[in-house]
Amino acid sequence: MLKEIFSAEMLRLMGAGLLETLYMTAVSSAAAYAIGLVIGVVLVIGREDGIRPMPRLCRLLGWIVNFVRSAPFLIFVVFVMPVTRFITGTTLGATAMLVPLTLGGAPFIARMVESSLREVDAGVIEAAQSMGAGAWQLVTRVLLPEARPSLISGAAISVTTILSYSALAGFLGGGGLGAIATNYGYYRGNSQIMLVMIVALVLLVQLVQTVGGYLARRADRRIK
């Protein structure tokens, strides 16, 4: 049995799956973070009592974020398939999955960023304002640097969420470990393969969390 699971062919398949998962997670996390960071910043500074009030834009973004966040990811993948096809030309494979992963992950990241930035002491922002900092300087020199440890922890959680989305995407023709789990574990009823995939995903999540926690602690100057 073990021989069958860990045959040369199977190992090659798993190795390729792992690389695909890492590829999907890394690229879509980076893209989703870029979008989510901007939305998160706007959600904080654009509030009615924020440093650059933009209540209309803020409400619109809040509504979009809630909409995407409330849709189950599998349904969301189907929902954005026209967009996926428009951008990548297909809806199958790892690269096609980058589109729903990015669009689905960005609102989650926006909320993570928003909550990290809200933790920054209002007094510190006020002090910077009293020294003549403008909105852009407040964001780049006060909000983001002061929230850095919390942003790093949030980023680690976001990456693990996108990682689990990417496994889910295996059901809808995405690649990676999720696809192997679906095709070999689920459709062929091979529970050993399923177990190996689960263990691999758990290890990946643990790795990301541990590294993220370490980086966040190292970045924090409040405790020494």
Binding site: G123, E126, E146, D220, R221, R222
Partner: peptide, 8 residues
């Protein structure tokens, strides 16, 4: 509350 930047 002093309001110093804690990461600097």
């Amino acid at each position: 509350g002093f309001n110093l930047l804690m990461q600097r």
